[in-house]
Amino acid sequence: MTSLRSALFNLLFLVLTAATCIFGLALLALPRQVMRRYVQGWARLMMWLLKHVCGIGLIVTGREHLPPGPAVIAAKHQSAYDTVVWLAILPDPIYVLKQELLKIPAWGKLARHYGSVAVDRKGGASALKRMVRESAALLTQGHQVVIFPEGTRTLPGHRVPYQPGIVALAAASPAPVVPVATDSGLHWGRGAMARKLPGPITLAFLPPLPRGLPRAALLAQLEAAIETETDRLVRAGGGPAVQPPLVDNSVG
């Protein structure tokens, strides 16, 4: 039954997402806020389908740690679910995403018009500076910027070194950095078409990091906060304990 429900959701996800992208092209001439409401409507529909077709709900804890106004949401990234959920639960989030995604036909145009910040992961220091500059400007405008500090998805029980982009962004803006842990990978495997396992996904907002931390301390505290809570969530859900990364992630 789980496989059939997953297949049905995957089909609906594919068809409805394609239709959303195609019809959304007509909104490119309209203000960004129209596109925002349109894309958030798609995200909330996907969340509704995931709950009612696959039995995957959402539990959010620690909302009191999310301050009003601009914030950097430094979120654990385990599955495609993480790229949908923030559109559904935040008023006007902006994603930091890899540049390759903007090359997807139709979808890339919608994401660009929505205001996503693209990062060329092969662009070196100049690409990092551009990301920081664009993200800091959006924070100044009152947005909540969602960034995945690992820079990629990691399966439950796995870890990779955190990337220094989050440190540069924290240094460039007075907005608080809010760590977020999740166990989404236990229920939505890697890839949009992966099998979906019933049960609640948890997003856990953690206390914002102290301001003025040195670069290395900020990255270390961020990783410790996210990975400790993620490990707890994953183990509580029957998943494997998180293993330490194979590469040192310290920064100067």
Score class of each variant (00 low, 15 high):
T20K: 03
G41N: 02
G123T: 08
I104S: 00
W188S: 01
C54P: 07
S135N: 09
F13G: 05
V167Y: 09
R36W: 14
Q243M: 10
H113Y: 07
M35R: 06
T154R: 12
L128P: 00
V247Y: 02
I73S: 10
E64R: 14
N249S: 15
R37K: 12
P91H: 03
A71H: 03
S126F: 03
L87C: 04
P70M: 02
V178K: 11
I166A: 03
R232I: 07
A170Y: 14
M1P: 07
A192I: 08
I201L: 10
G124D: 09
G124I: 04
A74V: 05
L128K: 01
A194S: 15
A137V: 07
L12T: 06
M193E: 06
R153W: 00
Y95P: 00
G108F: 02
K103G: 02
P200G: 00
M35Y: 01
F13N: 09
S250M: 03
G157I: 05
A216Q: 13
G41C: 02
G69A: 05
T83F: 03
C54W: 08
E229N: 04
S6E: 06
A127T: 05
L11P: 00
R130C: 03
L155I: 06
I226Y: 04
L101N: 11
A26G: 12
H52W: 14
M193H: 09
V85P: 14
L101V: 12
V72A: 01
P105G: 00
P244C: 10
G239I: 01
A29Y: 12
D92I: 09
R190W: 08
R235T: 13
V145H: 10
P200R: 14
A29V: 15
P68E: 15
T20G: 09
T17L: 13
S3N: 03
V72P: 02
L25Y: 06
